[in-house]
Amino acid sequence: MHPVPPSTAMALRSLALAYFVQATGALSVVGTLAAIAAEWHLRDEQAALLITVFGVTFALAAPLLQMAFGHLPRRRQVLIGLALFSTAAIIFALAPGYYILLAARIAMGLGAALIGPVLGALAAGLVEDEQQGSAIAMVLLGLSMAGLAGIPLATWAAQAWGPRTLFLAIGAAGLLTVVLIRSTVPAQAGGEKVSPSTLGRVVFDPILLPAYFVVFFAAAAVYATYAFLVPIIRDVFHGGEQTASLAMAVLGVSGVVGNLFVVRLARRYSADTLLVAGMAILGFDLMLLLVVPPTLAQLFGVLMLWAFATDIVWPSQQRRIAELSAQLRGVALAVTASFVFAGIALGSALAGFLYVRWGFHANLFGSLVLLALSWACLALSARRTLLTTKGIL
């Protein structure tokens, strides 16, 4: 295999930076929930709705934007999406009130929906066939680094300098990345526009549809508790601002460890096996949170296991979808991303509803119910796959 030329390596790093900025801007609201609520005088559940509207927007827009603009050159799609995302982050920072905040998050969701589905394909088009896996992995490193460093730093920055400064910085970083991509990533031909009939066939495929709902309910299960992690740390575990930043850092480090772990195990075990294992660990962790004393030491131990489990679940689910959809893999993975963000939206909305009315333990019970639904969908999907293999379906 020939080494990647330095100019191509620089282009891939630029795309990884775009993923880092997008993921940090999208998910930093979780760690800065209390700071945002304080700055704009919002209730915690109002602040959590900012996660929900982003997720709903991404879920609905990602496939529709590919239908409308999938024929455009991929670099142009990324540049337009990142410029929109970054400008919306700056509007968020300058927002005078809640409705402008909501509008800015919707615009950020639209920008992210245009970026996310094409970054991997753009990276793959920059290298030879045998180097495509490494190129995509390099771009996805930006997503991993957002969990490891971006979100913990965002949490700390919002507490130190305020959420307005944080989102100004995210917007500025995004616009600088636009310039960097424009100068380092060569233009490519446009992709194929996804027709409504193709999208419908991929969404409602009898094997793929329950597989999508596996990740939908899994994402909802995670965010029904995770979206309110900072208020939970404040109210239940009596931690301060530094504790929240440290919690995000623990989640990031443990998540990267889980990702490395699943990369090695994927050579020996099937996606179904790893998915079951990750969901079982997550269920055990949720039950552990129900019974352990509310001390910070116990919390950090549980969070380590939490991040480890979720970073087994996500790549295993992606692998499972890829294996089930050989013919239309790209469209199926884009639809999967929509179901993920729809799950995030549902879980985040439930998090505020449950916590405000019944407290921390209601969040955990809600997460367990959603995780059970994910298990049921996995069983249905596995059964349909088996029946198809035998020629019954």
Rank of each mutant, 00 (worst) to 15 (best):
L274G: 08
L274A: 11
L274E: 10
L275W: 04
L275M: 06
L275G: 01
V276M: 09
V276L: 11
V276Q: 09
A277I: 12
A277D: 09
G278M: 14
G278P: 13
M279T: 08
M279L: 13
A280W: 02
A280L: 09
A280Y: 02
A280V: 11
I281W: 01
I281E: 01
I281M: 02
I281F: 01
G283K: 03
G283A: 05
G283V: 04
F284N: 14
F284S: 15
F284C: 15
F284M: 15
D285K: 04
L286I: 13
L286C: 03
M287K: 07
M287T: 11
M287R: 10
M287I: 11
L288H: 02
L288W: 10
L288N: 02
L289I: 12
L289Y: 06
L289N: 05
L289M: 13
V291L: 09
V291P: 00
V291Y: 09
V291G: 02
V291S: 07
V292Q: 04
V292S: 05
V292L: 11
P293L: 14
P293M: 13
P294I: 09
P294T: 13
P294D: 08
T295Y: 04
T295L: 08
L296G: 00
L296I: 06
A297N: 00
A297L: 03
A297T: 05
Q298D: 05
L299W: 05
F300Y: 07
G301L: 13
V302C: 04
V302K: 01
V302I: 13
L303P: 00
M304R: 13
L305I: 05
L305Y: 00
W306S: 07
W306P: 01
A307M: 03
A307N: 01
F308D: 02
F308P: 00
F308Q: 03
A309K: 05
T310E: 10
T310F: 12
D311C: 10
D311Y: 13
I312F: 11
I312R: 13
I312E: 08
V313Q: 05
V313T: 07
W314E: 12
W314V: 14
Q317L: 04
Q317H: 06
Q317V: 07
Q317C: 03
Q318M: 08
Q318C: 02
Q318A: 05
R319N: 09
R319H: 10
R320S: 02
I321C: 02
I321N: 03
I321T: 06
A322D: 07
A322S: 12
A322C: 08
A322F: 05
A322N: 09
A322G: 09
E323Y: 02
L324F: 01
L324P: 00
L324H: 00
L324Q: 04
L324E: 01
S325H: 12
A326H: 14
A326C: 11
A326K: 14
Q327A: 13
Q327F: 10
Q327S: 11
L328W: 15
R329Q: 09
G330D: 05
G330V: 10
V331E: 10
A332V: 11
A332R: 12
A332G: 11
A332D: 10
L333F: 15
L333A: 15
L333T: 15
L333N: 15
A334V: 14
